[in-house]
Amino acid sequence: MTDPSDTSLGDTPPEGTHDQDYNFAYLDEQTKRMIRRALLKGLAIPGYQVPFASREMPMPYGWGTGGVQVTSACLVPDDCIKVIDQGADDTTNAVSIRKFFERTAGVRTTEKTGEASLIQTRHRIPETPLEEGQILVYQVPIPEPLRFLEPRETETRKMHALEEYGLMHVKLYEDISSHGHISTAYAYPVSVEERYVMDPSPIPKFDNPKMHQCPAVQLFGAGREQRIYALPPYTDVVSLDFEDHPFTRLRNDGVCGLCGADDTYLDEVIMDDEGTRMFVCSDTDYCATRIEEAAE
């Protein structure tokens, strides 16, 4: 993998191959500067939600405008990007976002996790472990982990300021007492460096442990809610739990019907009217790579 932080471009950038009707990576420079400043503060205060003046993008709010703005502010012409939705490179929204950056930034694209210098994702973290120098950009719908407990921004902001997360613990514990389990299966809250409680975006809780001490830079963009937050590499990210009810990952204990993996997150596919099921890896690149390797 090339080191994306190698700034060998220097003073004479090559002739861009992006659509010349738009600025490089679509956004205007002032907007990019504003997002870049927010990203730096986000990295300096891991897990804290930095307000930013999100712009309207040529795709709807809720479809990744936050992630797209973050990616747009981070891209360099040398980047090779991968876009996934539900773990798959070929879902329509992933295709649409990938095309957007091909067109507006002229960057190379890939489906291989290992080849990508920047990965934009919705709802999954790839199964292939990320490496140093890579950037993972999450699309975030509701960045505030406390929002479902307290709808008011003025209140939740105070709670973060005072590190007052009792309400969250009470909610999780009530789940345990009524269901025997914490009834949050995705967007499962995490604590960052023992300070900020953070929403990991709606990834399945199976993916949560991948955030902890991850060698890649993790950036989170919530366009509609106007928030950016970040995790530098090697940051402590711990899923909230209790001594008597430790956090557990959750996956169907089946194996992938295509590649045979027994440790990946699986999609359940209904095969016929009888309700026959098949389980396949949600990470399409990981699955395809395993099949290729087995064939060799």
Binding site: D85, Q86, N93, A185, P204, K205
Partner: peptide, 11 residues
């Protein structure tokens, strides 16, 4: 939009 990953987790 597809939400099947989250749905699977809830399932």
């Amino acid at each position: 939009l597809p939400h099947y990953v989250d749905f699977q987790s809830e399932l």
